[in-house]
Design a binder for these strands. Structure first.
Lengths: 136, 136
DNA sequence: ATAGTCGCTTTCCTGTAGGTACCTACTATA
DNA sequence: TATAGTAGGTACCTACAGGAAAGCGACTAT
């Protein structure tokens, strides 16, 4: 086996065996669960506006497609972060709400929002400086 | 303009105009910056093991390819989260270290690791329950 | 008779992230 | 001579996430 060949088939860095302690990044799995694509705005919206129906989420997160919204809701439900309630009426009614487990993320989100409010403009400034320096 | 047509060309939900307040998720931009693919293990490694060379990072984050590592390092440097120091020697030597701005993320990471340590098994349990229920 | 509602599901298609492999220039070492 | 080491750059290619659009089932309102 040549040195240069990299093992394929491992989708992300979190897919590595956790038995390798030296390169284990302890926040890897949680990032995949909480901050994978679309999950943040969904959890945020659910946490901010309370129990909501599918269409309400769809309307608030304006750029998401129903297919992807369904996928992400299923994923979050499976992970136990949200609770889905189906009412067999006509037309059918489904409500989503954040679970206790998901609600536990609120302080984390607040922490994140806090960091953002004080440091986001510094990032913006750094980008500007970098681009200006690269142009010279 | 038909109601059903969704505006294309907006790559992610963070690309929306920030002038729309009602669906603005305040942690959207920061998630893109800090938790986009590969940035977390890089920042974590840099924060944990201090200043490092390219190959050291490559060896610690075993599944990353040099191309992607370069891309992510450039991005993080542009965002001001890490500092790159180039030594024009032979062979060339480059060192990466976390910046003050990046270091400010440490408590956030700790918070995240904390949530993970207490809740990750609950997520695991929820997944198991969900799968078991779906199989029935 | 027709359209509309809701919460999806399915099919088809494209964009792009990321992987593989090969390249540089220069030196030290074997 | 040749091989390794360093920090990438580049060209090519594939896989997969996600977008667009249509449909469905069961009923209601017009």
């Amino acid at each position: 086996m040549a040195e240069g060949t990299r093992m394929a088939g491992k989708p992300t860095w979190t897919a590595r065996t956790p038995t390798n302690p030296e390169d284990a990044c302890p926040i890897g799995p949680v990032v995949d669960i909480v901050f994978s694509r679309w999950t943040t705005p969904i959890l945020w919206t659910l946490n901010e506006y309370g129990r909501q129906r599918f269409v309400e989420l769809e309307r608030r997160i304006t750029t998401i497609t129903p297919k992807v919204l369904t996928q992400r809701l299923r994923q979050l439900e499976r992970d136990g972060l949200i609770v889905r309630t189906y009412h067999p009426e006509v037309p059918p009614r489904v409500e989503y709400e954040i679970s206790d487990l998901g609600r536990g993320l609120a302080p984390l989100f607040a922490h994140l929002a806090d960091w953002a409010s004080t440091n986001l403009d510094r990032v913006e400034q750094a980008r500007h400086d970098y681009d200006a320096k690269a142009a010279r």
